[in-house]
């Protein structure tokens, strides 16, 4: 392959580089746990938007809630992971738009939440069908006979529920 590349060629080579970098960063961050719900990773949570090529390249992230107190811890974890992988040049940028939604939590993330005892949020499709929030499914016994105790729970993103069959209280990820 000649080094005198056409602009098109050089463009696609750059795009390939950018894709390689993005893939590398996403793989890296898929091993970084959420500080408050450590069973899921930052990529499972859907808060890593993209890796924007440039000099410097940027990892673009978004907060779950405006006042999420984990935001600073998340940025520190990302910084540490990037530095440890020799990607100290990559900057971290926070962007609010489009606003984060629970629909961005990956299917794997939903399964991990469930196994951890947190009822995952319903998909957008299910919510549309139900025209509102359905009762949560108890993550302990699978019963749908459940009741909301409080709309606000241990973190901004969760509500408190209880199961009427097995009597266990549990957290439910709020759909937003």
């Amino acid at each position: 392959m000649s080094s005198a590349a056409t602009p098109t060629h050089s463009g696609s080579a750059m795009a390939a580089d950018a894709n390689g970098l993005a893939e590398r960063v996403f793989t890296l961050l898929s091993a970084v746990p959420d500080p408050e719900i450590p069973v899921i990773s930052l990529t499972d949570l859907g808060i890593i938007r993209e890796v924007r090529p440039g000099s410097p390249a940027e990892v673009v992230i978004t907060p779950t809630y405006s006042g999420c107190p984990a935001s600073i811890a998340i940025q520190l974890s990302i910084r540490q992971a990037l530095d440890a992988a020799g990607l100290a040049d990559i900057q971290i940028r926070t962007e609010l738009s489009p606003a984060w939604t629970t629909d961005w939590i990956s299917e794997a993330g939903r399964q991990k939440l469930l196994a951890y005892g947190i009822a995952p949020p319903e998909s957008a499709e299910a919510r549309l069908k139900l025209k509102g929030d359905a009762p949560a499914i108890c993550p302990q016994c699978g019963s749908a006979r459940t009741q909301e105790i409080s709309r606000y729970g241990s973190t901004p993103c969760k509500a408190l529920w209880r199961c009427l069959d097995c009597a266990e209280p549990f957290d439910r990820f709020k759909c937003i």
Partner: peptide
């Protein structure tokens, strides 16, 4: 529960 709710609303507002 109300304590948690009011603090959570406060946190959203602070953000």
């Amino acid at each position: 529960e109300v304590d948690l709710a009011l603090s959570n609303i406060g946190l959203d507002l602070l953000g």
